[in-house]
Design a binder for these strands. Structure first.
Lengths: 171, 171
DNA sequence: AAAGATTGAAGACTCAATCTTC
DNA sequence: GAAGATTGAGTCTTCAATCTTT
């Protein structure tokens, strides 16, 4: 496919590597969690978000937004998590249309059991090779890319107010 | 989940963003390709790899390696691509165990039709916000992360010998 | 009509089992 | 026995249709 060069050499090399990261990193995390904790990375992420939310519960639509997922996908996942006793559905008191997902004690324990192995893998694969300056650089670059993906997104990105602060299960 | 802080604040912020990129970037590329070209990002990637290979063909195992996929996944995908007339299977002359996937003219045309839109999106989402120095930095960081994912991987990473050089459909 | 959510069907990926050739 | 590849079953995701509440 030859056309006027869309990407220069440097961009192409970066893209090949970024594409590989985007393909392999999730696969690696997925494999570890599935093997050691019997849950998917996405399920872990959902449990972690709930664990950091007030009352350990969130509306499904809000949870979907924070998890970067569609509402449909989230609803299916919550159904599975509920079947395992890790989450329960609860009617929202202020808006009868809404449903809240609430993390159970069993769900919290499952998350707590899974967290060390998962966070350990994140650290060893991503951060062990990076110095403090590079970590900041990585964060900055990812922020720029995210801005490129969704130009229109409303104000707060919502990550600021996480109750647990650092050391949480999100990594 | 409170435990001795596994990740410091800076690492946690970077990780949240990297996780979002890893979740959203594929989704954005997927949506565009599906809508405009009727193919998945992975299918596009496979066609692009074949288009850059000698004879426009590769062994399935080699193709799987270059595409960062399992052989099983690749076999399923090749079956679908074959059903659409974009690829054909061919017995390998030197090793009767092996199967080669060969890009057809129709497949090449489909790739050529899909490439501008796809590469355009890659450029606008990822590279438009980045200066030359940042692109190199991104490439370097991704390389480091990849090294962390697979410590044991054998010698050459195999990207060097791509026939088409820059301007190819890989982006 | 829009927002929040659920459901079922279709398509894709993973895993394990299987087959052939080296 | 190991490497290359295929297949089928089970699971997950997406998409569209549907339902209720605002």
């Amino acid at each position: 496919v030859d056309e006027p060069r869309w990407l220069d050499d440097e961009q192409q090399r970066a893209w090949r590597r970024l594409a590989a990261v985007v393909l392999r990193l999730p696969a690696a995390l997925e494999a570890q969690l599935q093997r050691d904790a019997g849950m998917s990375h996405f399920e872990y992420w959902v449990l972690a978000l709930l664990s950091e939310a007030g009352e350990r519960s969130l509306r499904l639509s809000e949870l979907a937004r924070q998890a970067n997922a569609s509402l449909s996908r989230l609803s299916h996942v919550v159904t599975r998590l509920q079947a395992r006793g890790w989450v329960v559905r609860e009617a929202d008191p202020v808006d009868a249309r809404a449903t809240r997902a609430v993390l159970t004690d069993a769900g919290f324990e499952a998350l707590a059991a899974a967290a060390p192995g998962h966070v350990g893998l994140v650290r060893s694969t991503v951060f062990d090779g990076l110095g403090p300056h590079e970590v900041r650089e990585l964060g900055r670059l990812c922020e720029t890319i995210l801005a490129g993906i969704e130009p229109a997104d409303g104000a707060g990105s919502g990550v600021s107010g996480a109750p647990l602060g650092s050391g949480g299960a999100l990594g």
